[in-house]
């Protein structure tokens, strides 16, 4: 069936609620209102107020409540209204959920859905890409789909996973990306995906930047460029990354997140450490500079990695 990225997430939630009575959803305005972006629309009517729970405006309470429910055997799926606001639930996620198994041997099978990303004129409080915070913290997994099919499969895999999983869903892709999605439930492995093959250069990225990179590559007619969609940021698919670096010898890494200590920095470090002998040029990173996302659309466009910037980086490295 053809679904948008957003509909695929809704479909995954519906599958999980139907198939596993331990699964329940909690978040701000996700019940009667169906969520700020309508991701949970219809689920309150189908599953009732005990399984689609409207919470007070307290991210700390949402994550903390989910951790408690997970300890007694439930499978909570939390929605942060915007990824930015996860900062208010940071302590429960990083210090409690992330360290629960290490400290007490207890599984914490919670999923945190984070509507992330810019390009929607959301300004500095509604555009963040905070995935690196959670990749850095031990005990958490982080995934970031770029397609409708992966959105459903990765979310179901996240719900089935016994660890806390941060699910980065890009707001800019909600209604812009659409694709064929299998009707039955399925789980997508936390591994990278080769979007297109090539052997002169590889672009490594994830999330919305997969689409920007693809557009840039399509403008570079004639060059053999591989595109790797990481899909899982923690664990990182090191074998796929190293194989791509070895085959192509030139690497461009794109982050929509701020430049310093982004996922791309980790990927770059991995390649420098373990594929040095195969490199034929510097590893090039394209990312948002270390600034908040501006509100004005012109300024936002200026700071987010654009198709033109990605293409220019590829062109320079190909010519090197």
């Amino acid at each position: 069936m053809q679904l948008t990225y957003l509909e695929a997430i809704t479909d995954a939630l519906r599958c999980a609620l139907r198939d596993d009575e331990r699964v329940f959803l909690l978040g701000e305005d996700i019940g009667v209102m169906g969520g700020a972006f309508k991701v949970t629309a219809g689920l309150f009517d189908e599953f009732g107020p005990d399984r689609v729970i409207d919470t007070p405006i307290s991210e700390e309470a949402i994550v903390g409540g989910a951790v408690g429910a997970a300890i007694v055997g439930m499978r909570p799926v939390c929605e942060m209204q915007f990824a930015d606001f996860v900062a208010c639930g940071f302590d429960q996620l990083v210090n409690v959920a992330g360290k629960l198994h290490y400290r007490l041997g207890l599984a914490a099978p919670i999923v945190l859905r984070l509507p992330s990303g810019g390009g929607v004129a959301g300004g500095p409080y509604h555009s963040a890409n905070p995935e690196a915070w959670f990749v850095h913290a031990p005990g958490l997994k982080v995934v970031a789909p770029s397609t409708a099919e992966d959105a459903k499969g990765l979310l179901l895999a996240a719900i089935a996973d016994p660890n806390p999983v941060v699910f980065m869903e890009h707001k800019g892709l909600y209604r812009r990306v659409r694709g064929e999605v299998p009707e039955e439930p399925y789980e997508t492995p936390f591994e990278a995906r080769t979007v297109r093959d090539g052997d002169e250069l590889v672009v490594i990225t994830y999330g919305a930047m997969v689409h920007a990179a693809l557009a840039a590559i399509e403008q570079l007619d004639g060059a053999s460029i591989r595109l790797l969609d990481l899909r899982s940021l923690e664990p990182l698919d090191e074998e796929a990354i190293l194989a791509a670096a070895r085959d192509c010898s030139k690497v461009v890494i794109v982050d929509e997140a701020n430049y310093s200590c982004a996922i791309g920095a980790q990927v770059s470090s991995l390649i420098a450490e373990r594929a040095f002998e195969d490199l034929d040029g510097p590893i090039i990173r394209v990312a948002t500079p270390d600034v908040p996302i501006p509100f004005a659309p012109e300024l936002e466009r200026a700071v987010l990695p654009s198709v033109e910037r990605i293409r220019a980086a590829c062109e320079e490295l190909l010519a090197y």
Partner: peptide, 24 residues
């Protein structure tokens, strides 16, 4: 101004310098 702030520019090494993969 944008290019100076965010542009990526690859500088060739000094004459005769080779990359790791070329040497290998």
């Amino acid at each position: 101004v944008l290019d100076a702030a965010y542009g990526v520019h690859v500088q060739p090494g000094e004459e005769g310098a080779v990359s790791p993969v070329v040497a290998r």
